[in-house]
Amino acid sequence: MYYAIIALILVICVLLSLVVLAQNPKGGGLSSQFGAGGGAAQMMGVKRTGDLLEKLTWGFAIGLMVLSLGSYVVAGHAPSGPVRSINQQRALETRIPATSAPVAPGAPAPAAPVAPVPAN
């Protein structure tokens, strides 16, 4: 399921970038290059083509956000899940030693023992 959502995200990204490249508010975008002499713009009219491209842009952008949030939910976000990076794994394995005696107010804090860094 997760991989299907990722595939849909990639398809929407490609379509969104094509739609964004096709539009230009000054009329010089790729939308005038389709067909012989900008047949798509002549067939539907420049205003209607711009409206369609704008609606497609918003639709693809909203779809991309929804699928991105969906992939987060499907992948699982529980803290007991798998560790995804070596830095996160080392941070979870590191134990900070607790001080044995409380420090009196105004007294200097005892030096904490430093744990040796493991070699890779």
Rank of each mutant, 00 (worst) to 15 (best):
M1H: 15
Y2M: 00
Y2K: 09
Y3T: 10
I5V: 15
I6E: 00
L8R: 01
L10Q: 06
L10M: 12
C13Q: 10
L15F: 07
L16V: 02
L16W: 04
S17M: 12
L18V: 10
V19D: 03
V19G: 00
V19R: 00
V20I: 12
A22L: 10
Q23Y: 15
P25K: 12
K26F: 10
G27W: 01
G28Y: 08
G28S: 10
G28C: 06
L30R: 03
L30D: 08
S32M: 12
S32Y: 06
S32Q: 06
Q33T: 14
Q33M: 13
Q33S: 11
G38P: 00
G38F: 02
A40W: 09
A40Q: 03
A41Q: 10
G45N: 08
G45Q: 10
K47H: 14
G50R: 05
E54D: 13
K55Y: 09
K55A: 14
L56S: 05
W58M: 15
G59A: 05
F60S: 01
G63K: 00
V66T: 09
L67S: 00
Y72D: 15
Y72K: 02
V73P: 01
V74I: 09
H77C: 08
A78D: 10
P79W: 02
P82C: 09
I86V: 11
N87C: 09
N87G: 11
Q88V: 14
Q88I: 14
A91D: 07
A91P: 01
L92T: 11
L92K: 12
E93K: 07
T94H: 14
I96S: 09
I96D: 06
P97V: 01
T99Q: 11
T99W: 13
T99Y: 11
S100N: 04
S100Q: 03
A101E: 02
P102G: 06
P102I: 09
P102T: 00
V103A: 05
A104K: 13
P108I: 05
P108A: 15
A109M: 14
P110V: 13
A111L: 15
P113R: 06
A115I: 04
P118W: 02
